[in-house]
């Protein structure tokens, strides 16, 4: 077990190192930099002045120095400074974090609450009309862009209920009900998509388990359907489901990028888009790196959970 964890951690660190190179190089490929963008709005500025700003931002140094400097920053949990706002990046990101985390948590709760029960029903009633209906509904969730679903939800509320969602962020201290509504709708839009994946994997995994001998034994003993499905079968079918939930939690960030934009929520994901458009290197670099770390960590966590959930999985060799 110990060697297994050490092995996995080494691989995780190496992967992150590789990702840092990819991210760094990608952002240096970009045509135009922050200085050009700052000046395009200010009109003409002398080359000497531009040079001075480049120097101040540390952009005149060779790339490898900039890269090593960045690595050192990450290692010391220093998120660097934003070119655009002239503030430490952490100072900008910190107030945005709770918004994104709350949205992500709510979305995953929705996804599990919708996905697991429908997956179970679909598997138990395999090839029935209900199964087909549930599968089509879940596939529709995979097909609709989350940002469009968000727009349609807002539009429907406005048209049918004459209710306009708050245009700016409402903090829970200010008005708890409004805050909840503000978060529940985007969480539903994002969670629907993830629920589709969870539903599909629950269904196929449960179908496999339901064919096993010990399930037949349980039926033969005369146990009720509820006991067989929910107590005996689902427990063993959950392993792949947990994997997907773990992967989804990390990948939710993709859905959040657009949903936060549509619902005007001041979260990290929306900020990432703005930073990309501004070519604010330190912010983009660090945010993408943070996302990468979250993804790798949640993958690691899921792998570790296997052993807890399923004693049959052994961490040997």
């Amino acid at each position: 077990m110990k060697t297994y964890v050490a092995q996995r951690l080494t691989i995780a660190v190496l992967t992150l190192l590789g990702m840092s190179i990819v991210i760094f190089v990608l952002l240096r490929l970009a045509p135009g930099d922050i200085v050009d963008i700052l000046f395009s709005t200010a009109g003409y500025v002398s080359p000497a002045e531009k040079q001075a700003i480049m120097k101040e931002l540390g952009m005149d140094r060779p790339y490898w120095v900039q890269y090593l400097d960045w690595l050192r920053q990450i290692a010391t949990f220093d998120l660097g400074k934003s070119y655009r706002y002239d503030l430490p990046a952490w100072q900008i990101i910190r107030p945005l974090l709770p918004v994104t985390l709350e949205l992500a948590a709510l979305s995953i709760v929705f996804a599990v609450l919708l996905g697991v029960p429908t997956g179970v029903i679909s598997a138990v009633r395999q090839d029935s009309t209900l199964d087909y209906v549930l599968r089509v509904i879940s596939l529709a969730g995979l097909s609709m862009p989350a940002f469009w679903l968000g727009m349609v939800i807002i539009l429907a509320l406005v048209t049918w209920f004459r209710w306009i969602p708050p245009l700016t962020y409402v903090s829970p201290m200010e008005n708890l009900t409004l805050h909840a509504v503000q978060f529940l709708l985007p969480a539903l839009a994002v969670g629907y998509r993830s629920s589709a994946l969870i539903m599909r994997i629950t269904r196929s995994s449960l179908l496999e388990v339901l064919r096993e001998d010990y399930i037949r034994t349980a039926w033969a003993k005369g146990q009720s359907e509820r006991a067989v499905v929910w107590r005996h079968a689902l427990k063993n079918a959950l392993l792949p489901v947990v994997t997907v939930i773990g992967i989804e939690f990390a990948f939710l960030i993709g859905g959040l990028v657009v949903t936060e934009t549509v619902f005007n929520l001041p979260g990290v994901a929306r900020f990432l888009v703005q930073a990309i458009l501004w070519r604010d290197y330190p912010i983009v670099q660090n945010l993408v790196m943070v996302i990468a770390i979250v993804v790798i960590l949640s993958n690691l966590l899921v792998d570790m959970l296997y052993g807890v959930l399923d004693p049959r999985v052994r961490y040997g060799g």
């Binding site: 590789g18 490929l29 990948f251 990028v257 657009v258 996302i291 990468a292 993804v295 790798i296």
Partner: peptide, 24 residues
């Protein structure tokens, strides 16, 4: 496999977002 891990470590949309911003 390890190189593919690196590419797969980022959400598809985030990677595409950074790529398309970088490429113009």
């Amino acid at each position: 496999q390890r190189v593919l891990d690196i590419l797969q470590g980022l959400p598809l949309l985030v990677l595409a977002l950074v790529m398309s911003a970088a490429l113009g």
